[in-house]
Amino acid sequence: MLRVNKIIKTYGKKFRLELDNLTLESPSVVTLLGPNGSGKTTFLKVLLGLVNPEKGDIEYNGSDIYKDFAFKTDLGYMPQTAIYPDNLKVKEIIEITKSLKNHTQDYDDELYEQYKIELILESKFSSLSQGTKQKIAAAIVFMFRSRVIILDEPTAGLDPYASEILKNKILKEKKDRLILFTTHIMSDVTELSDRVIYIHEGKLKYDKMMNSEFSERDSRQIASEVANYFKG
């Protein structure tokens, strides 16, 4: 569904992201792991069209994502820190998202209802806690039934209850879409992932399908590998 073809992105002499060939199939939940500065965010930004690679391209259903709007129409993205204009009300943030997405189907309001967003519709975005802002971002990202959903550390700012709701939503929605997320929480990997991709120093180091038989063992293996990298 999403095919990465020999992507290269360099930041000065310090960092180089270099991914040869990588295919992300739908439906599946793919976890992107790696230490800080490993290239996860750069890879996500390349996928989102925020960063232009020097070489290579990414295809979505056979079309180049940089030339065809189809990918962005099918894309939902939840940033690590949800930031919208401070003086807008929550209802205006949802309005602007709906108007720009040009979505004609029924909205998926499950997270919107579970997080009780209707109670804060009149609140200014700046007056909300970081956790509440993340709930709004999560509700928005699933609202449009996007075929590809990218989540940057989605559970990091959420309380345990809200985090559980989001994880249940991911498990429910993974049946017919591609969900790619980054995390540092290993329990999220074992609970949610079908596949784990581990990036270090801009290169793909580990790419493995998870299943019930191997998931626990593999998560320990990945955790230990990450720990070893941190130790140097």
Binding site: G49, K72, L75, Y77, I83, L100
Partner: peptide
């Protein structure tokens, strides 16, 4: 800037 980044992921 972060809001602009979010907008850039929309079909605009």
């Amino acid at each position: 800037k972060e809001f602009i980044e979010t907008l850039l992921t929309y079909p605009v």
